[in-house]
């Protein structure tokens, strides 16, 4: 081993420290608050919603906080994405449903109902929850 190699070897721990310093503030490896899987079905007028979205926002008016998340609805089924679950507690849930028949340049298609908002309290564990969107005619204007 020549002199230069030895000097390089001495730098190894320093490199480790530098890499650690760079990574630490960037949040690598942080998992944040506990996240739980939420899954289930979404129906509208008794039928599965073909394409849609569920927006899940912690309800701050009831003291909840944390990151929001979304779940995609496909053929009436939904499931939060890996590592992007809910934190549990009171939530404001907004459901969008589309007919899945492309219109213009939109692949999701036309709205089945106006965005449907409902307040739900979820347990702090992985949960199955089935949503039934009431008929648009029955919803308050």
């Amino acid at each position: 081993m020549n002199k230069l190699d030895k000097r390089l070897l001495r730098l190894v721990p320093l490199v480790g420290v530098v890499v650690g310093l760079v990574l630490a503030p960037s949040g690598c490896g942080q998992t944040g608050p506990g996240r739980y899987v939420l899954s289930g079905t979404v129906t509208y007028e008794g039928k599965p919603v073909p394409v849609g979205e569920i927006h899940l926002a912690p309800d701050t008016s009831k003291g909840n906080s944390g990151p929001g998340t979304i779940a995609l609805i496909k053929d009436g089924q939904y499931r939060t994405q890996p590592n992007r679950g809910i934190v549990g507690g009171p939530y404001i849930v907004t459901i969008l449903g589309f007919d899945g028949v492309p219109v213009g340049d939109s692949e999701a298609g036309s709205e089945l109902f106006p965005p449907y908002r409902v307040e739900v309290e979820f347990p702090k564990q992985s949960t199955v929850y089935n949503f039934e969107v009431p008929s648009a005619r029955a919803q308050k204007p």
Partner: peptide, 10 residues
């Protein structure tokens, strides 16, 4: 600023 994707939504 780098903003974490676990930031409080509100």
């Amino acid at each position: 600023r780098f903003v974490s994707d676990t930031i409080d939504l509100a």
